[in-house]
Simulated assay, not measured.
Amino acid sequence: MAQPTASTTNTAPQVRSGKIAGLLREIVRHRISYYFMLPFMLLFMTFTVAPVLTSVGLSFTYYNILESPRWVGLGNYRLLFVDDDVFLTAVANTLKFAVVTGPVSYVMAFLLAWLISQIPVRYRFLYTFFYYTPAITSAVAMTVVWTYLFSGDRYGLINNWLMQLGILNEPFLWLQDIRTIMPVLIVVSLWMSMGIGFLSFLAGLQNVPKDMYEAGAIDGVKYRWQQLWYITIPSVKPQLLFGAVMQIVFSLQVFDVSVQLAGLPSPLYAGHTIMTHLFDYAFIRFEMGYAASIAVVLFLLMVGLNRVIFKILGSKE
């Protein structure tokens, strides 16, 4: 077997140094553009990258705020996945919630945006306002309304209606029964899910060139559903990708609705999610190292799911 010569062994470092030198020359050449990017990059590094790296570092320590962080290695992660049954329940609840609310609210937001884009322009603002209002209303205000609807006494609207119809003989504890807590959370979250993704879909649909539909009509596209499948959806692929990413974040970070409706902790942890588990250890028990490990797991879960979405909806462009 031929032995590598000195010239071949020095090739890789030379290539790397050449790339670095070329990058530095490009930065100097386009320094004005980088000056404009500098404020955003500083804020991004300070308030996004630095906290993430700090959380990763703290996840390998025992830190209770009062004492200095003490290195424990993988102890937090071992405890998280081996001994913490409540965390595993929270993961199961979060995934169950995300599997239902994610695809349903995503498709519902796109279809509603598509239907609104079909009506006359002067009526679009009114319909958009009606569907977007639950998303901009505070979770506390919305849960007050839903708590009244699902109240466990005879004065709750759902119980009152069902008792008047003869379906129930006595009030049902919707927010205390472990069988109904998660369905109620899903219903409320779907009601509040017409957020940024819905607006991005609507904006993308309104910017599809009209001549594409005219060209499609010449090529034999006759019906609205054919226009939707062959013209509209390919034209709004960037908005579909953005909406999918935002929906993943929304589904995995469910917190306010769960706490306001089911409490913390919820009965038998039926409404417990990863975010409520993180909040419990971070701001009630003040075990910041353990809470950081929960945050890292949630972060990796989001990144993994987003990579899957990029594989499905992303493109080289």
Rank of each mutant, 00 (worst) to 15 (best):
M108K: 10
M108L: 15
A109V: 01
F110N: 02
F110E: 04
F110Y: 11
L111K: 11
L111M: 14
L112V: 15
L112F: 14
A113Y: 00
A113F: 05
A113Q: 05
A113V: 05
W114S: 09
W114T: 07
I116H: 09
I116Y: 03
S117G: 07
S117R: 03
Q118R: 14
I119V: 15
I119E: 08
P120I: 02
P120T: 10
V121P: 03
V121W: 09
F125R: 14
F125N: 15
L126I: 15
Y127K: 07
Y127L: 15
Y127I: 12
Y127H: 11
T128M: 12
F129V: 14
F129D: 15
F130K: 09
F130Y: 14
F130L: 15
Y131G: 10
Y131D: 11
Y132E: 06
Y132R: 10
Y132T: 12
P134T: 08
P134Q: 03
A135D: 11
I136G: 05
I136A: 10
I136K: 06
T137H: 01
A139M: 11
V140R: 10
V140Q: 11
V140L: 13
A141P: 06
A141Y: 03
T143P: 00
T143A: 01
T143W: 01
T143S: 05
V144I: 15
V144F: 13
V145M: 08
V145W: 02
V145T: 08
V145H: 07
T147W: 08
T147E: 12
L149C: 06
F150S: 03
F150P: 03
F150T: 00
G152M: 05
G152R: 08
D153G: 03
D153M: 04
Y155R: 09
G156A: 01
G156F: 00
L157C: 04
I158A: 08
N159F: 05
N159C: 03
N159P: 00
N160D: 12
N160E: 14
W161N: 09
M163R: 06
M163T: 04
Q164G: 13
L165D: 09
L165M: 12
G166E: 08
G166Q: 04
G166F: 03
L168A: 04
L168Q: 08
N169Y: 12
E170Q: 15
E170F: 12
E170P: 01
P171M: 05
F172N: 00
L173E: 10
L175H: 01
Q176S: 13
D177V: 02
D177A: 01
I178H: 05
I178F: 03
